[in-house]
Amino acid sequence: PSFDRLEVDGVDFGYGKDLVLQDFSLKIPQGKVLGIRGASGCGKSTLLKLLMRFWDVERGKILVDGKKIQTIQTSALRDHQSCVSQETHLFHDTIEKNISFVKEGASLEEIEEACRKANIHDFILSLPQGYSTLVQELGSSLSGGEKQRIGLARAFLSGAKVLFLDEPTSNLDSLNEAIILKSIDDSKHGKTIILVSHRESTLQNCDLRLEMGKA
């Protein structure tokens, strides 16, 4: 599939006896940023995980270009989807390799451009070894905001047609948030972008808004 159309049709899903989504339907537009907000436990992150097929729905359908997501190879889903969450996992390797692994053969110029979009390029250059700086185990040498911006740089570099952003600015100050939100808006052409956040400032420039409540 070309991953141009994502649709959730009459979905039920829960954890054990706790129903999180009930008869939930949503058509997700391409070329726009869809912002989702709601109380904790209403199913925002669960929705993203179902769209990535980390789990299967209990009832209803998730469709990609009209095809049930269960009929699409997992490798195709992973090639066309990118997710940024509150927790960015880093490896004990250089900053360059921590970013570039999402795109085989990525040039340094491509990596730097992705980092500019994530507003992390100047910080990396300020380090003694720049992009060759070694990241400590689990990223302990970097702050939460720095790790989150590296996660965003990965998403920009990947070139994925579908971006799931789950609280992507939760560890960022207002200046970094504004720069990154502009980069997201500039990158939306031909992409499907879902931005989940509890921060009004993060969602204020979204093209569409969805308020979710508990099932």
Rank of each mutant, 00 (worst) to 15 (best):
T46N: 12
L138F: 12
C42K: 01
S107H: 09
G43D: 15
E109P: 02
K17M: 13
D65I: 05
G145Y: 01
I95H: 00
R53D: 09
G159Y: 04
K214M: 05
I193H: 01
C83A: 15
F123P: 04
N171W: 01
R154E: 05
R116S: 14
L47V: 00
N171H: 13
K188W: 05
R209M: 15
T202M: 04
V11H: 03
C115E: 03
G145N: 08
G213I: 11
L172G: 03
D65N: 12
T46H: 13
R59K: 10
I111G: 01
L26Y: 11
N171R: 03
V8A: 03
G66W: 06
K147A: 06
Q22T: 03
R116A: 13
K61G: 01
G43Q: 11
L165S: 01
E112A: 05
A118T: 02
E200K: 08
G190Y: 06
Q148F: 02
K61R: 10
D18E: 15
I193F: 07
S201A: 10
D122L: 15
R37Y: 11
E146A: 09
S174T: 14
A106F: 12
D9P: 02
P1C: 12
S107T: 15
K17T: 10
V64Q: 00
V196P: 04
D166R: 06
K27V: 14
L157Q: 00
V20T: 15
A118H: 00
E146N: 12
V135E: 04
F101D: 14
N205S: 10
Q129R: 13
E200V: 15
L51S: 02
S174F: 09
F156E: 00
A153K: 00
E58P: 08
D79Y: 05
G105A: 11
L108T: 15
E87A: 11
N176D: 15
L208V: 04
V11D: 10
I36T: 00
A39R: 13
D65V: 05
M52W: 04
D93N: 13
R149N: 00
V102L: 01
E211I: 12
L134S: 12
R59N: 13
N205A: 13
D93A: 12
E211S: 04
F91D: 08
S183I: 11
V162P: 01
E58V: 03
P128I: 14
L63M: 14
K68M: 06
S45Q: 02
G213Y: 11
V84I: 01
V196E: 03
F123W: 14
T202I: 07
L48Q: 14
D4P: 07
L108G: 08
K49W: 04
T94K: 10
L48K: 04
I62W: 07
S2V: 06
A39Y: 02
D173H: 07
K68W: 13
R209D: 10
Q129V: 12
K68S: 14
L127Q: 07
L175W: 08
C83I: 14
V102W: 02
V8Q: 05
H121R: 08
G38D: 12
D122V: 09
L181K: 04
E167Q: 15
N176S: 11
K214A: 11
D23L: 11
Q86E: 09
A155C: 14
G14Y: 06
F156T: 02
I28T: 10
L165R: 03
A118E: 03
R5L: 10
